[in-house]
């Protein structure tokens, strides 16, 4: 397999991570917490989508998953996070770890261990006849293929970026979100209903998680660890981009996606399991060299 094919894989992975990482980083920037249970929101969305897909066509099922994710996110925030909003980041992180444990195991009891699949038909587009551009054993170009599923994933991601950009820059609630991300006290002084904005962020993050869950489900399958197995990549992407910055999160996601795909391709076959470790290695290096991420605020203290 050539480099081009792995870049395609990386872009697809980066796309669904980006959708989730935006939600994650918005929660970080505005509610001021690292939500470790966020992976479970993806799982909830993916399962809602599978259930809905039994009765509805796939696009409507994805919509149902997004609504389901948004509602679940708001309810969970109302029950668990809003009451302890002013206790600081560490108690909230620990609460989210506990909540993740509860949700993951509740889903496991309800849905069992098995994997579910979305019933989709795919067509594959091959690009052949590209000249080889070999450097050593590495083929820098090579033939590659793109499936319609991949195009759907990347297309959804681009649509999300555009809608989100419009939301953050053109609507009152989006501008209020950015204001709160900058300075919550100032935002309140200017008459912004901070709790309302927080709730809006929870809903938005849940909607994005639902969509990301469905896309991961379409690309692979849906099981109880769908979200949890991606949470560390999402987190790495969000911090890499500069925690709290949605645009940074998009960039960070594609970096993580490409690193994972390329290290899978170029590590010796006995070590392909290390590809996710490579993503964290990138994260650790970034935290050391430029703790503020690609774009964002300083997280170093002493």
């Amino acid at each position: 397999m050539g480099l081009a094919q792995n870049v395609v894989f990386g872009l697809v992975t980066g796309s669904y991570i980006a959708i989730a990482a935006i939600g994650f980083t918005l929660i970080y920037g505005i509610v001021n917490m690292i939500n470790f249970a966020y992976g479970e929101y993806l799982t909830i969305g993916a399962f809602t989508g599978v259930l809905a897909a039994g009765a509805l066509p796939l696009p409507l099922a994805a919509l149902a998953a997004m609504v389901g994710g948004g509602v679940a996110s708001l309810l969970l925030a109302w029950a668990f996070f809003t009451p302890i909003n002013d206790t600081g980041p560490v108690p909230m992180l620990l609460t989210s770890i506990g909540l993740g444990l509860v949700l993951r195991n509740a889903i496991r009891i309800a849905a069992g261990q098995g994997a579910r699949y979305y019933d989709t038909t795919t067509s594959t587009f091959h690009l052949r006849g590209l000249p080889d551009l070999s450097v050593g054993s590495v083929d820098l170009l090579g033939n590659f293929f793109v499936t319609s599923r991949m195009l759907v994933v990347v297309g959804c991601a681009v649509a999300v970026f555009l809608v989100l950009h419009a939301l953050l820059t053109r609507t009152d609630i989006g501008i209020a979100m950015r204001a709160m991300g900058d300075d919550e006290s100032l935002a309140r002084v200017r008459g912004i209903d901070t709790q309302f904005v927080r709730n809006a962020v929870w809903v938005l993050a849940g909607v994005l998680a639902g969509l990301a869950g469905v896309l991961i489900g379409i690309q692979t399958n849906v099981n109880v660890t769908t979200g949890f197995s991606h949470i560390l990549q999402i987190l790495a992407a969000a911090i890499l981009g500069g925690a709290g910055s949605p645009y940074g999160a998009i960039a960070g996601s594609y970096v993580i996606g490409l690193v994972v795909a390329l290290s899978t391709a170029f590590l010796p076959s006995s070590m392909t399991g290390l590809s996710s470790a490579m993503a964290f290695l990138v994260l650790v290096v970034v935290l050391l060299v430029k703790p503020s991420g690609i774009a964002g605020t300083e997280v170093r203290e002493a």
Binding site: M33, I34, P89, V90, L93, L232, L235, A236, I239, A243, S276, A277, F280, L281, L283, V284, L287, P291, V299, R300, E301, A302
Partner: peptide, 18 residues
């Protein structure tokens, strides 16, 4: 150790994962 509390949590978590 120079990172903020919650980022220290993430960095150590990442070390364990690696």
């Amino acid at each position: 150790l120079r990172l903020r509390d919650d980022f220290l949590a993430i960095a150590t978590l990442a070390a364990a994962e690696i």
